[in-house]
C-alpha cells in the first residue's frame, strides 16, 4: 500500500524524526489504514459531482472591519523563546 521510502519522505516533510523501527511500524500501520480506506473505491461514483466541502454552504463572509488585536504580551506568552517584540527562532537561512 505504502512504501518505506514514501513514509520516510512524508516524515521529512512533516518534520518528524523516526527511528528505523518506527518507520517500519508506520509503514505497516499506515498501510493497513490505507487498505481499509480503499474500501471506498468499491463505491460507484460515476455521475457523482466531486464534493468541495462536506458542509453544503457557500459564501460565508465577514465585512472588512478592523477589530481589536491581541495585546502583544498575550500573543507572545506561549512562545518558547521571545524578546520584547518578537518570537525568536533558530536562524533560518535561504528561502522556501
Amino acid at each position: 500500500m505504502i512504501s518505506l521510502a514514501e513514509i520516510e519522505k512524508v516524515a521529512v516533510l512533516a518534520r518528524l524524526l523516526l527511528t528505523p523501527a518506527e518507520s517500519q511500524q508506520m509503514t505497516e500501520q499506515l498501510g493497513k489504514i490505507l487498505e481499509y480506506m480503499s474500501l471506498l473505491n468499491e463505491v460507484n461514483t460515476e455521475n457523482v459531482e466531486p464534493l468541495a466541502h462536506a458542509v453544503e454552504l457557500t459564501n460565508v463572509f465577514r465585512e472588512d472591519r478592523v477589530t481589536p488585536s491581541l495585546d502583544r504580551e498575550m500573543a507572545l506568552a506561549n512562545a518558547p523563546h521571545r524578546d520584547e517584540e518578537c518570537y525568536r527562532v533558530p536562524a533560518v537561512l535561504g528561502e522556501v
Binding site: 523563546h81 517584540e85 518578537c86 518570537y87 525568536r88 527562532v89 533558530p90 536562524a91 533560518v92
Partner: peptide, 9 residues
C-alpha cells in the same frame, strides 16, 4: 551572538 531569527506576525 548566536544567529537567531526574529519573527513578526
Amino acid at each position: 551572538g548566536r544567529a537567531d531569527s526574529r519573527i513578526d506576525l
